[in-house]
Structures are given as structure tokens and as C-alpha cells.
Computed example of a mutant assay.
Amino acid sequence: MAFTPLHDRVLVRRIEGDEKTKGGLIIPDSAKEKPSEGEVVAVGEGARKENGDRITPDVKAGDRILFGKWSGTEITVDGEEMLIMKETDILGTLA
């Protein structure tokens, strides 16, 4: 199934963090926080200004991003858990 977000929404796949600390300790699943880093899978066409013109999104599919801890709504697309969020919930891109 192909999923295309509407307006200024972005579909994001979470990128799992390290399973170990820098000191080499293994982090159990119960102590892990959900990652706040992801990869943009799909982007809507952009929000509209009051005059009807589109605002071009700043992110594109394939970008690695950081987002807030409580950002987005979890959805399942083709059996894979992903997030859908507004572009304004994105904190920035990673190079």
C-alpha cells in the first residue's frame, strides 16, 4: 500500500539507537527510550498560505531528522510502525 501524507504532514520511520552505552553496558528493552531520530519516508505537498499558494516543505524523503519526544502519531503501514507528524514538529535535519 502506498501512503502519501496530506498538506504539511511527514511520514517518518524511527531509527533505533545503540543497544549499549558508551561504557559498554547493554541497555535492556524496558529501560530504552523511543528514539527521537528518524528517516523521512514521504512528505505531503505542503501547507497553504491564506492566498492559496503552497508552502514548499523543507524536508524530503530520505532526510534524517530529529523530532520531539512526544511528536507525531504512531501508525502502521504495511506492517511497519511509523510516525506521522506535522513538519513543524521536526527539530532539524542531520547531515
Results as ranks from 00 to 15, higher is better:
residue 2 A to C: 14
residue 3 F to T: 14
residue 3 F to A: 10
residue 5 P to T: 00
residue 5 P to E: 04
residue 6 L to V: 05
residue 7 H to I: 07
residue 9 R to H: 09
residue 11 L to E: 01
residue 12 V to D: 05
residue 12 V to Y: 01
residue 12 V to W: 00
residue 13 R to F: 06
residue 15 I to K: 07
residue 18 D to Y: 07
residue 19 E to K: 15
residue 19 E to L: 15
residue 19 E to N: 15
residue 19 E to G: 14
residue 21 T to F: 11
residue 22 K to R: 13
residue 23 G to A: 14
residue 24 G to R: 10
residue 24 G to H: 10
residue 25 L to N: 15
residue 25 L to S: 14
residue 27 I to A: 12
residue 28 P to N: 12
residue 28 P to S: 13
residue 28 P to M: 10
residue 28 P to G: 14
residue 29 D to G: 13
residue 31 A to S: 11
residue 31 A to V: 13
residue 31 A to G: 14
residue 32 K to H: 08
residue 34 K to T: 11
residue 34 K to I: 10
residue 35 P to S: 14
residue 35 P to F: 10
residue 35 P to A: 13
residue 36 S to R: 15
residue 37 E to D: 11
residue 37 E to I: 12
residue 38 G to Y: 04
residue 39 E to T: 00
residue 40 V to W: 02
residue 42 A to E: 00
residue 42 A to I: 02
residue 43 V to Y: 03
residue 44 G to C: 03
residue 44 G to V: 00
residue 44 G to T: 06
residue 44 G to I: 03
residue 44 G to A: 05
residue 45 E to H: 02
residue 48 R to P: 06
residue 49 K to H: 06
residue 50 E to P: 09
residue 50 E to G: 07
residue 51 N to E: 13
residue 53 D to H: 10
residue 55 I to A: 10
residue 56 T to F: 05
residue 56 T to L: 08
residue 58 D to R: 09
residue 59 V to N: 02
residue 59 V to M: 01
residue 60 K to Y: 00
residue 60 K to C: 06
residue 61 A to W: 05
residue 62 G to P: 09
residue 64 R to P: 00
residue 65 I to R: 01
residue 65 I to K: 03
residue 65 I to M: 03
residue 65 I to T: 05
residue 66 L to V: 06
residue 69 K to S: 07
residue 69 K to T: 07
residue 70 W to Y: 13
residue 71 S to C: 05
residue 72 G to F: 07
residue 73 T to Q: 12
residue 74 E to R: 12
residue 75 I to Q: 02
residue 80 E to D: 09
residue 80 E to T: 13
residue 82 M to T: 00
residue 83 L to D: 01
residue 83 L to N: 02
residue 85 M to A: 06
residue 87 E to N: 04
residue 87 E to W: 02
residue 88 T to E: 09
residue 88 T to K: 12
residue 89 D to M: 12
residue 91 L to N: 01
residue 92 G to E: 02
residue 92 G to V: 01
residue 93 T to L: 08
residue 93 T to N: 03
